[in-house]
Design a protein around this nucleic acid. Structure first.
Lengths: 192, 192
DNA sequence: ACCGAATGAGACATCAATGTCTCATTCAAT
DNA sequence: ATTGAATGAGACATTGATGTCTCATTCGGT
């Protein structure tokens, strides 16, 4: 009785399917369920067996995205050491979640009604807290609000993922490019 | 015979409709034609009279986006003065095109086949050239590729537009937030 | 080698969005 | 005030995606 981790026999990797779906939907949100299935390397019927419909799929993406982001935040250890180094660790941890994060940030069809999802508020708060902490300790400049820095972080991660996926940036440079731009900007420092 | 600028009677402002459509589609790419019409403040029938279908609408968005971006690039005068100041001017010029640009960057359903649209290649080249020029003149750092800086520029403009539209950043801070982050980054400079 | 679960492919009905049309109304120009 | 173009609302047929089902096949566990 070596069922698998969750009691069911495992054939299609739910997580892998969701990551593939996110990668596709980020750049083609109108993609068909059939296209999503193909992109994940499975049949449409199988996709339907795992996710009742498009809504269910999107909600699963949301759930996984939140979960993986929380994990990344945990592993980054944002409370340890200087905030700029913490940010570098966060960028590193976030790399493989990037397409998923990108989809969730972009597609706000999630927010039914007009209130933000609770889980997202938590994430925002954690990232935002890092920037605020950095400002208080004098590591980050104070003329850019934590809210904006958080938003910019999301945006750059998304851009980075896209640039890599599209071949405009080497995958190995992902972390460096994002962290360096976010921390130091494009201008050449007068003093390092 | 005071027809209007283009010979037809003008009732719905084509440009205004497209901007509204872009603003909506950026955050809800699966929006219905009816939703788009409502968002633009017109009826579905009228929307159909101006744009044959969804494809035509998207292609019109593309065309307008390219046109307005080219205009912004022209007005920014990228060849005059230091590149960092040119970049600031570009950010300023790009502000009102932001939602449109954001939609076009995000939705790559445009690129039929696998080749990039010619117009976009031109835009990319112009923005990229600015960063390259800045690197050569010593204004910008050389460890971040022009391609990445270009991508980051798009991403930050999109994030900025989103943050403003969502009320997380004041509209009046749009230019400052983007230009400052892009040029100087989040880290507090040791020396200014 | 056997068995059962899960899959892929395809058929099919359903449903929502789309595209087209009509008609009454509004509005700008005269 | 009159005219004609353009609009909004609604009806309608069409199309394409969706959701469900069946059946043959594959594959992992025993």
């Amino acid at each position: 009785m070596s069922h698998s981790v969750y009691g069911r026999l495992m054939s299609v990797d739910r997580t892998q399917v969701l990551h593939a779906a996110a990668a596709l939907l980020t750049r083609k949100a109108t993609a068909t369920m059939d296209e999503v299935a193909r992109a994940a390397g499975i049949g449409r019927a199988t996709l339907h067996r795992h996710f009742a419909g498009r809504d269910a799929l999107v909600r699963a993406l949301e759930e996984l995205g939140l979960q993986e982001m929380e994990g990344a935040l945990d592993r980054a250890g944002l409370d340890d050491g200087p905030e700029d180094e913490a940010l570098r660790r966060l960028v590193a941890e976030v790399e493989h979640v990037a397409p998923l994060l990108s989809f969730l940030v972009t597609e706000n069809q999630l927010f039914e009604g007009d209130q933000q999802h609770v889980g997202w508020a938590r994430l925002d708060a954690r990232v935002s807290a890092l920037f605020r902490s950095g400002q208080e300790s004098g590591v980050f400049r104070i003329d850019l609000t934590p809210a904006w820095l958080t938003e910019a972080f999301y945006g750059l991660v998304g851009s980075g993922a896209w640039a890599v996926q599209d071949g405009r940036v080497a995958a190995k440079d992902f972390q460096y490019m994002i962290a360096e731009l976010l921390l130091g900007g494009a201008r050449r420092s007068v003093e390092k």
